[in-house]
Design a protein around this nucleic acid. Structure first.
Lengths: 202, 202
DNA sequence: GAGTATACTTACCGATCGGTAAGAATCAAT
DNA sequence: ATTGATTCTTACCGATCGGTAAGTATACTC
């Protein structure tokens, strides 16, 4: 059962890292979740950093594969974009811990290590920007501008995702349910307004 | 010079909390920045939590005062909204540490303390939502929907703000400068597209 | 059935954490 | 000159941190 324990450790670590961050997470606690000692964990992952890196790598892999999959679902770049963003929202709701972790990494990576790890979202982002620039009317949009358009949408999604718990506590549950229902609809509107802002020259 | 040391401690603490989070920050290190021992810090702030709370309180105060100020600069709600969001972006560029800290709090507050502190952004958010609902054509928009509209814009701004350091490392400085220049322009476009989506019934 | 990885455990390390207690330096008011 | 805050210091506490070293139980191989 070599991989079994490893997988469980990774799952527990993801939860902890997402909830309390790299510094706030102790490997002893992670191992404790499986009723193991921290040395058992250190057997599978030599250092805390290694564990963290592996957790992160898996998430970013999954994200990239996801976007590539969304691209295949339609031929129209405009439709692809809508799929990507809506799907991204769905994914963030499905596994909110992933989003929390990625945002934490965005905040931490500069201070925790100077090793300037290549950023998990870079290929992911570049891919989406390219899709946008295939939309009729957007072919000539310059790269920094296209980047901003995409990044604003990503920001909307990720920020809402990490706000979930807090918003849930702040508003009555019925109000918050309405908010959660409205969000994807408003997100779709935002995407469509953007795409409609440059009418394709036919 | 009672307040002097206190202020300096708060400034140093803000920096550290923003960079490394609550857990990653040690009070000894904060005090060390002023060449003091941690007990000097503990004299001014009985507990680490108190220091953190005070830092947070000041930032959220400043934010709320800022929005109220932006409202006064115009009579047109549509113009007020644009001022608020563009100003929010400017503020996040001016003191990026504040934004980082607030996002960290968004991620941490549920796990670090169950005491469900009243959320710093709530009055701030409510204020902006009300401004939106004063815009001609938006008076009848239901609250959850208006909330989503506002929150998407806030998310765009804050997420970009915390990405600053990472993006700066990922892209060549000239590319990134163009991105930074384009962002507020695209942000304004986003606001205007939103406001134009419900033409006022005249 | 002896040898050998595998997957753990106990024992221990130095460093650092937040926090308490008690004392010392500074300064103002009496 | 004495008292009494104010503002720090040194000394110390128990707990926990990530990590090393060495031993052990299990299970598979030859």
């Amino acid at each position: 059962m070599r991989d079994d324990t490893r997988e469980q450790l990774l799952a527990a670590a993801k939860q902890q890292f997402a909830e309390k961050g790299f510094y706030g997470t102790s490997i002893a606690q992670v191992a404790g979740e499986l009723s193991l000692t921290k040395q058992a964990l250190l057997y599978h992952f030599k250092r805390k950093e290694d564990l963290y890196a592996e957790v992160l790598r898996r998430i970013s892999d999954r994200l990239l594969r996801y976007v590539e999959g969304a691209e295949g679902r339609s031929d129209e770049p405009a439709q692809q974009l809508e799929d990507i963003f809506l799907g991204l929202y769905a994914a963030s709701r499905e596994s909110p811990m992933d989003t929390r972790l990625l945002v934490r990494e965005l905040l931490d990576n500069q201070s925790r290590a100077e090793k300037a790890r290549d950023w998990y979202l870079l290929p992911f982002l570049a891919e989406i920007v390219e899709v946008l620039r295939r939309v009729p009317g957007f072919e000539e949009v310059e790269l920094p501008t296209a980047f901003c358009m995409v990044y604003q949408l990503i920001g909307s999604i990720e920020y809402f995702a990490i706000s979930d718990a807090t918003l849930g506590k702040m508003y009555d549950s019925d109000v918050y349910e309405r908010i959660r229902d409205d969000f994807p609809r408003e997100l779709r509107s935002q995407v469509r307004r953007l795409l409609a802002s440059r009418p394709p020259a036919i």
